[in-house]
């Protein structure tokens, strides 16, 4: 009874092409959102470090806003709310926008923390040899900062990857959404179990790596 309901091989064989499409769309979402989030987060952290009080205030506003808003609320607002303002984004674009705004706010704060932890002497050495502030941060401060926060950066990447599953609410046929469709085809929850297992198997090594990196930093 249990096996039939949750581990029905035939249900997977029957819905396999659909689930594969869903999986590939999730991979595509991650491939767009993670690099865009890291790039935007890093740019924001650089602006924070190089700017005056006004840009620092803007940074804090951005980070606080998008870390406070649940990504699901943000996504629903962008997809269902913005059309009332005449801004109509497709489900893929809405998903990318919502998760890049959310993800970049975390990445930005992580990179910022890494940058401010670098000793002032590193800035002194760069500037004393005629480098601009921008060159100093790009070539001297940022590489060291990123190295020190690899653990938290990977942790956020893990969270962001999992968060792509909320895109199922805007009818984007990503992995979870296709599992729900498959379930309705075969009248059996096996596709959902399958999706959960795939997430678990693929992300477990990453979760382990994050734990190890964070412990490594703690014992430094």
């Amino acid at each position: 009874m249990f096996l039939e309901n949750f581990f029905d091989i035939n249900a997977i064989i029957y819905t396999y092409p659909l689930l594969l499409d869903g999986f590939l769309l999730t991979v595509k979402l991650v491939a767009v959102i993670v690099p865009a989030g890291i790039a935007l987060g890093t740019i924001l952290a650089l602006i924070y470090a190089l700017g005056g009080w006004f840009t620092k205030a803007g940074f804090i506003l951005y980070v606080d806003t998008f870390r406070s808003l649940p990504p699901l609320v943000l996504l629903v607002f962008i997809f269902y709310g913005l059309p009332f303002l005449g801004i109509q984004l497709g489900s893929f674009a809405s998903a990318v926008l919502a998760l890049v705004l959310n993800g970049s706010s975390y990445y930005a704060e992580i990179v910022r923390a890494g940058i401010v932890a670098i000793p002032k002497g590193q800035w002194d050495a760069g500037r004393a040899t005629g480098l601009t502030r921008f060159q100093t941060i790009v070539y001297i401060v940022l590489p060291q900062a990123v190295r020190n926060v690899v653990g938290p950066l990977l942790g956020n990447t893990l969270e962001l990857t999992k968060a792509t599953s909320i895109c199922s609410v805007v009818a984007l046929p990503e992995f979870l959404r296709t599992a729900q469709i498959a379930q309705s085809h075969v009248y059996n929850p096996t596709p959902l179990v399958f999706v959960a297992l795939v997430y678990l198997i693929l992300l477990w090594p990453l979760a382990r790596l994050v734990s190890r990196l964070e412990r490594g930093i703690a014992t430094h």
Binding site: P119, G121, Q122, A125, I140, P143
Partner: peptide, 9 residues
Amino acid sequence: FQSFNLYPH
């Protein structure tokens, strides 16, 4: 500088 300030990376 007193603390050298070499770039460790």
